[in-house]
Each structure stands twice: as structure tokens, then as C-alpha cells.
Design a protein around this nucleic acid. Structure first.
Lengths: 193, 193
DNA sequence: GACATGCCTGGACTCTATGTCCAGACTGGA
DNA sequence: TCCAGTCTGGACATAGAGTCCAGGCATGTC
């Protein structure tokens, strides 16, 4: 697979037991065998049916975005034993697409059609992404981490939506009171760092 | 210009005095000389500086989207006398871009990044679009027309944003009371048509 | 085990935004 | 001139947004 997909795809084999990288081909992310996988709660991402997840999106620290699929490889007895991930660097395609689009595109952003109708989906993606990259369960986040998630949600405009507060609090599994407590802390530390 | 831009661009010359099409080359929109221009309040769209507007976006009934620029050609005395519009069919470019994008794109929509941060921009575009297609000034819309705009704004989620009501009312140049009046009428007629 | 610390929580509370109502003003016809 | 339809500012009731606090529940320390 690594050969077929040329220099733009990274193929990683994870050990599900130790949560570490077993082998890696064409390492875009710079990981080496033995590194922690940070798969976190991959198993619970998509409880629907198959053992193949994705395609979903991940980002590298340098901003490149990857399209990823993962497959769980199971023992004969059914317990998972390894996870195979293929990460494709999208940037070249995005660049080419941007060239084509910009040729005729108005400077105004393409009418965002229906404004992100389902903001709860949006919210869940942000929270889910944080949980996955931080590698800790939602319930076990530290206070600063919770504040960080809130900052993301806030700057994504989620909190400007009517009646969102209770929903957001529920999604973060904290009380409404705590939500506001975190929020004021976020704002004060932002103005006096 | 029509020759240069091949089969994908329509060039139209409008008579500002009679608001009708003077001449048209390569008619994508199917208009012929003598047709009404429906330029509406083009002159007030972008009061900033020059006599060249755009690029902005228009749509055809069949769904194709056009990138458009307009230039006002003035008499020596400074009053406008004609408007030259170039409309470029974006669909071929969009198709090509879509092919490239879909190759590596996750099925999930690309994280709408920052949720349409500036919803007021969004709102103005919807209102502006309505005014332009209806061809009537904002202040002179009929009640059903106002309801129609509100329906668009509503289904775009604008009204689900906190504190949007006063801003929306102001943008529509109606009072807050009227806004709610229109809104209840919209909702009752929608449930009992 | 006793205590201190830090955070979370439910509930009570205040204040602001939302939505409703109405009398009066305005507008475009008959 | 009057009338019907509509818009408006202001008064109001209610729901939602934020704030506050006395507890509760962990964790860590002695």
C-alpha cells in the first residue's frame, strides 16, 4: 500500500494491546515503531457495524490535513489485536483544487448555503477531536483542558447559538454552573495573560 | 471578450436608462436584446469607490452558478448610461475541483472550520439576494415578500443566533415588533396552508 | 483516620433577551 | 374623506443567561 500510494500516504500498524506503533511505512507524522499510538478511544468512535473506520480527518502540527482510514485486525478469538491505519496527505489535492476554484470564484465566500444547520454535530466533532488528540476520556479532562475545549467551542461560535448552553454542558458532561465558571476563567485569563 | 472567454462567458450590455438589455453575446441566460435587465439597485450595492462591481455570484434557474463582474459606463457628464456585465459559468471549474477534492476528502464535510463567524454577512447576503431577484427596494417590499425573506433567514438559521433579532429587524428596516408579527404569520401559515 | 484543598454541583437568585399585545400613526387606494 | 391594512414604540410577561453559594466528593498530606 505504501508503495502504491506514493509519497503522500503513511501506513501505520498499531498494537492494540500496548497502544504503540508496531511498524510504520513512509512516516509522514515522524513517528517511529515503539511510539505511543494515541488511538485513545478509537474503538468507540463509530460503534456501527464494521471494523473499518473512516475516512475521517486528522491534522498534523504543521497544518497539513490527512484523510485517514483505519481497520481493526482481530484475533481468531475475536478480540482486537492490531489496528492498521492509512493516512493520506490531502494538501497536494487541496492545492490543485484551490487553483481551479479560485480561477472563477468570487472573492465573496461561496454562499455558505445552509448555515451549519446542525451545530450539535459541529460541537460533537470539536469535542470528539479534542478527546482524541488529548488522549483522555471526556470525564477525566483537567480543568485547563476543559477550558481549552470551551475556547474552541467558543471561537467556533457554538456558544452564540440560542439555548446552546445546556446542550454544551451536557455534551461535556459538566453542569451548567461549571460551564459558566470555566467560561469566566477563560475570559479573564485571556484578557490578563 | 466573448470570443476570448470561449463558450463559458456571457457578455451583456445594459441600457441604464430603460433598464433593458441592449446587446448580448453568447447568451447563457437565454436573454435577448430588449429584455428587462433586473439590475435593480445595482448602483447601491457597493458604494465604495470605483464603477466596477464584483466579482459576485449569480445563479441560473438550472442551478449553474456564475461569477460576474459589472462595469458602469458613464456619459461625459458623469451620469451613468450603460452597464457592461460579464458572466462566467463556473460549473466546469467546480466540477474539476470537486473531482480533485473528492479524491482525498473524507465523507464527513471538511470541518466547517470557523462556523460562519460573521453571520451578519450571511444575513446581508440573503437579504441582498432577495432584493436583487425581486427587483424591489427593501423599504418597498410587500408583507408576503418580507415573510419570504424571513423564511429564508429562518431556514438559514440566522434567527437561532443569540441577540440576532434586533440586528435582523434593523437590516430589514422594520421594527422588532413587526419582525415577530411576520414571524408568527409565517409559522401559522406554514402549519395550516 | 483526620484534615485541608480544589473542583463540581444543584438550587436560588438577578438581569437581560425574547416574544406578545395594543393604541396610535401612517399609507395607498375607493 | 374615510377605510383597511400595515407598521411602530412602548409596556409588559416569561424564558433564558449568568452569578453566587452552601454543600459534596474526590485527592493528597500529615
Amino acid at each position: 500500500m505504501a508503495l502504491l500510494l506514493g509519497p503522500y500516504a503513511e501506513v501505520v500498524l498499531h498494537d492494540a494491546a500496548t497502544d504503540r506503533v508496531l511498524a510504520i511505512w513512509n512516516p509522514i507524522s515522524g513517528r517511529v515503531p515503539g511510539d505511543p499510538s494515541l488511538l485513545g478511544e478509537l474503538d468507540t468512535i463509530e460503534p456501527a457495524g464494521t471494523d473499518v473506520y473512516g475516512p475521517y480527518e486528522k491534522s498534523l502540527a504543521d497544518g497539513r490535513r490527512l484523510s485517514c482510514v483505519s481497520a481493526v485486525l482481530r484475533d481468531p478469538d475475536g478480540r482486537s489485536s492490531a489496528v492498521l491505519c492509512v493516512n493520506l496527505d490531502r494538501t497536494p489535492f487541496e492545492h490543485a483544487a484551490a487553483v481551479l476554484q479560485s480561477f472563477a470564484a468570487p472573492t465573496a465566500p461561496p454562499p455558505p448555503a445552509l448555515f451549519e444547520q446542525d451545530w450539535t454535530e459541529n460541537m460533537r466533532r470539536i469535542i470528539g477531536g479534542f478527546v482524541r488528540t488529548s488522549g483522555r476520556q471526556l470525564e477525566k479532562l483537567s480543568r485547563p483542558q476543559r477550558i481549552a475545549v470551551l475556547a474552541e467551542l467558543d471561537s467556533a461560535g457554538i456558544l452564540d447559538i440560542r439555548r446552546s448552553a445546556p446542550t454544551v454542558a451536557a455534551a461535556l458532561k459538566i453542569s451548567r454552573a461549571t460551564l459558566y465558571s470555566l467560561l469566566t476563567e477563560l475570559k479573564t485569563t485571556r484578557s490578563q495573560p
